[in-house]
Design a protein around this nucleic acid. Structure first.
Lengths: 194, 194
DNA sequence: CGCTCGTGTTTACGGCGTTAACATCTGTCG
DNA sequence: CGACAGATGTTAACGCCGTAAACACGAGCG
């Protein structure tokens, strides 16, 4: 095996995704390009096509990486909120989503990109499943109303995502952002419990 | 003056935006490019730069056009809901937003693009002002709590936008979409009145 | 040792945004 | 009317982009 033999790279696929993540953090979507990622790995652009069927698949892999990073944040937040009522944990997860979007707007622009290719591994930390698990706790014991679960999941996800996007694009002031997050999430909580 | 003299175009700026709108409807974001829009107008790509400082400004103009089209839809829906309580009109506006996003997903991808350049005219139909006007009716007479108004506006806009995006990307089935829209907007209504 | 295959390279093509230099049309002033 | 000037078009070129074809190197297996 032996990594970096001078000619062969050894683990180019992972290196490409790593480089893509770094470029995304630095330059946002416009930095995530086949040629730039390849150059960042010290490799020709054509080498990418040995590991991805197209450039879109590479950038989809970087986007998936970004989603995993975000999901890890949300799971960590959830761990530190263990023991709290489900509705409070749901709020913390939403706050985590919004905080990530505002702290890493360039990475977030990949997260919120429509998924062109399905992710390779589905067993990774997954934000939707996380939300669903908490929402299920809101159901009365014994009877899960699937429709109620769906609408609660959708409300949680849609409001968090929509709020993140609007704050990022239209509310530059950090203090105003905090006020709005608190006010909106209060209302979302009411809607979730209805 | 005389339009179309064979060499001079006459009203190229508007024609470019019109062509951009048509291309956006047909091919989505990837169709909205300087060269293609110029070609659709029977004009060279460089001609664009006599009317827009950069290609981004042209596509921003097309995006603004898309927002105006959407806003017109929403105003029309509002007209047909005149007389109903404010909370019901708010819901209809939200339904209109979501319906447009799902009916014209390609145009909507321009709408939800971050605005690079401020629109030329701000006096046009504007979705945010529309929402604000209705939300103001929810305030108790005499005392408007600006913070409450903001959080209600944000909840309305964020949930509609987020729901539209999630449905577009992850819920292909029309019937499932309707169920989710109804269920989520019910909950949003509760949160708005809180 | 030598074959094969995985994985890299170079080169080239067409499309993109953008600029510079040039051409034409139109309206205005003498 | 005629010439000049400015607005608005043209072509040609540059560099970046994704992608494909043809080629080259290196590792593992017979």
């Amino acid at each position: 095996m032996s990594t970096r033999s001078g000619y062969h790279h050894g683990a180019l696929r992972d290196a490409l995704v790593d480089a893509g993540e770094a470029l995304a953090r630095a330059d946002g979507l416009e930095g995530v390009t086949v040629r730039r990622i390849a150059a960042a790995c010290g490799v020709s652009a054509a080498a990418v096509y040995r590991h991805f069927p197209s450039g879109d698949h590479l950038i989809a892999a970087v986007a998936q990486r970004a989603r995993e990073i975000m999901a890890r944040d949300m799971f960590a937040r959830l761990d530190s909120a263990a023991g709290k009522p489900a509705i409070d944990r749901l709020r913390e997860v939403g706050e985590s989503y919004i905080a990530f979007a505002l702290a890493e707007p360039r990475l977030f622009s990949l997260v919120s990109m429509p998924m062109t290719a399905p992710p390779d591994r589905l067993d990774d930390p997954n934000a939707a499943d996380l939300v669903r698990d908490i929402v299920l706790e809101l159901e009365p014991p014994g009877e899960v109303d699937e429709q109620r679960v769906s609408s609660r999941m959708m409300l949680a996800q849609a409001s968090a995502h929509g709020l993140a996007v609007i704050l990022r694009d239209f509310v530059p002031d950090a203090q105003a952002r905090e006020m709005l997050i608190a006010g909106v999430l209060d209302r979302v909580g009411v809607g979730l419990e209805a």
